[in-house]
Computed example of a mutant assay.
Amino acid sequence: MKSQPRNRIAVNAKKVWRINASLYLLLPVIAAGVLTYFWSTWSIPDFIIYIAWAIIIASLIFFIWLLPALRWRRWRYEVFEQEIYIQSGIFIVKQTIVPMIRVQHVDTEQGPVLKKFGLATVSVSTAATTHNIPALALEEALELRDRIGILARVEEEDV
């Protein structure tokens, strides 16, 4: 097994993931609030309200605080002349090697939350799939995109 890739994604990735998780969990929190507000008029048993709030609070703690820290700790990448090595996952660690000869194009993506923190995602596309390296500092993402593009072109010319 190869050693871990050396490069980490930006520390602000945790903030971005926390904001995204907060936005996704907003609807269940609102639903539980409405349920709590109307529970007496709908004659819903108290234990259902308590269970709903316990699930929501546990979800908030897990998805907003624990998961982003675990994801950030595992996410690593490294670019070599012949390949791109990506490691991701939380409980199951996935290590992917993308040969440069298979790279068709490289993009950078930046949504509103990433833009707020000066981050971007690098997407490496092959014929079969797309591999993402999320939440890199914008300058680092642009340099990485250009470097992979140059290395992929060199590989193509050698064939």
Rank of each mutant, 00 (worst) to 15 (best):
Q4G: 08
Q4N: 12
N7V: 08
I9G: 10
I9D: 00
N12Q: 11
A13E: 07
K15W: 05
V29G: 09
A31Q: 03
A32P: 07
V34N: 10
Y37P: 08
W42N: 13
I44D: 06
I44K: 09
D46C: 09
D46P: 12
F47P: 01
Y50C: 01
I51N: 00
I55G: 04
I55T: 02
A58T: 01
S59W: 09
S59Y: 07
L60W: 01
F62L: 04
L66W: 03
L67E: 01
A69H: 03
L70M: 05
R71K: 10
R73W: 14
R73Q: 12
R73C: 10
R73D: 14
W75G: 14
W75Q: 14
Y85C: 06
Q87A: 04
S88F: 07
S88K: 13
F91Y: 07
I92S: 03
V93S: 02
Q95P: 06
I97A: 09
I97R: 04
E109Q: 15
E109M: 14
G111M: 01
K115F: 07
G118E: 02
G118D: 01
T126M: 11
A128T: 14
T130H: 11
H131I: 08
P134Y: 12
L136I: 07
L142E: 15
E143W: 13
R147I: 10
A152N: 01
E155M: 09
E156I: 03
E156K: 15
E156Q: 10
E157S: 05
